[in-house]
Amino acid sequence: MTTINELKEVILEMEKAAHEYEQEAREADTKADADFCEKIAGMYRIAAACCWEKLESQEAGDGWFRPEKGELPPDGETVIAIVSGSPADGTTLTGSYQTASYYGEDSAGWVVDEWPEWENPTVHCWQSAPEAPEEVKKKIQEIWDKIAAGEQV
């Protein structure tokens, strides 16, 4: 089995190869040779960057996504988020678990379900909310069906 350190060594070798191809591009006799070397160097750089990103997420291994790294949920998906800030006068949350959704397309950003009027909460990390148990889904559907039929709930 390959270890994390062995993977890091391979990634460093990719970066070294990219550097060598960049050097070859600077020393190339023709523009075509320089362009070819730059293209190969770019591919090595992209591959190394992708591998570093994947390796970092696997090293973290905690199942949480980090918005500061650009890891955002699909627009409108309800997630569990750990948030901090002041959602209302006299109220401060620090590392509070909340359900929230991210709306990047309409620039609303993060909306915390319990505090929908809260502007710009600090979301430290998030993960997908688990599916509700089938019996709970069934009960919720029964309630919605009664509401739709105009019955008292």
Results as ranks from 00 to 15, higher is better:
residue 60 A to I: 01
residue 110 W to M: 04
residue 89 D to M: 08
residue 19 H to A: 15
residue 106 D to Q: 07
residue 100 A to N: 00
residue 132 A to D: 14
residue 115 W to V: 05
residue 133 P to V: 05
residue 129 A to R: 14
residue 4 I to G: 03
residue 134 E to R: 06
residue 64 W to Q: 01
residue 104 G to Y: 05
residue 84 S to L: 02
residue 120 N to M: 11
residue 45 R to I: 09
residue 59 E to M: 13
residue 83 V to R: 05
residue 143 I to R: 12
residue 70 G to P: 01
residue 151 E to I: 03
residue 103 Y to W: 15
residue 1 M to H: 11
residue 105 E to Q: 14
residue 70 G to F: 09
residue 84 S to F: 01
residue 81 A to M: 01
residue 20 E to F: 03
residue 142 E to G: 01
residue 45 R to V: 09
residue 110 W to Y: 00
residue 93 L to A: 01
residue 72 L to I: 06
residue 31 K to Q: 14
residue 127 Q to I: 02
residue 111 V to Y: 00
residue 144 W to Y: 12
residue 122 T to P: 00
residue 132 A to R: 09
residue 68 E to D: 13
residue 43 M to I: 15
residue 100 A to Q: 06
residue 29 D to K: 14
residue 148 A to N: 13
residue 61 G to A: 04
residue 115 W to G: 02
residue 102 Y to V: 02
residue 41 A to L: 05
residue 111 V to K: 06
residue 65 F to N: 13
residue 128 S to T: 10
residue 52 W to P: 03
residue 90 G to M: 02
residue 19 H to Y: 09
residue 120 N to K: 14
residue 82 I to Y: 01
residue 142 E to T: 05
residue 19 H to E: 13
residue 128 S to N: 11
residue 86 S to I: 09
residue 52 W to F: 01
residue 126 W to T: 08
residue 140 I to A: 11
residue 40 I to W: 00
residue 148 A to D: 13
residue 80 I to L: 12
residue 96 S to M: 09
residue 85 G to E: 00
residue 9 E to P: 04
residue 134 E to M: 08
residue 17 A to R: 13
residue 106 D to S: 04
residue 47 A to M: 15
residue 107 S to M: 13
residue 102 Y to M: 04
residue 40 I to Y: 03
residue 74 P to C: 03
residue 48 A to W: 08
residue 105 E to T: 14
residue 77 E to D: 10
residue 24 E to D: 13
residue 97 Y to H: 10
residue 97 Y to I: 09
residue 132 A to K: 11
residue 113 D to E: 12
residue 88 A to W: 07
residue 27 E to N: 13
residue 45 R to C: 06
residue 144 W to F: 13
residue 97 Y to L: 11
residue 120 N to I: 01
residue 120 N to H: 10
residue 20 E to L: 15
residue 59 E to D: 04
residue 93 L to M: 03
residue 134 E to K: 08
residue 27 E to A: 15
residue 54 K to S: 07
residue 67 P to G: 09
residue 26 R to G: 11
residue 99 T to G: 04
residue 76 G to E: 07
residue 23 Q to I: 11
residue 37 C to K: 10
residue 131 E to P: 02
residue 82 I to S: 07
residue 39 K to T: 13
residue 141 Q to A: 14
residue 148 A to H: 12
residue 121 P to M: 01
residue 16 K to V: 08
residue 152 Q to D: 12
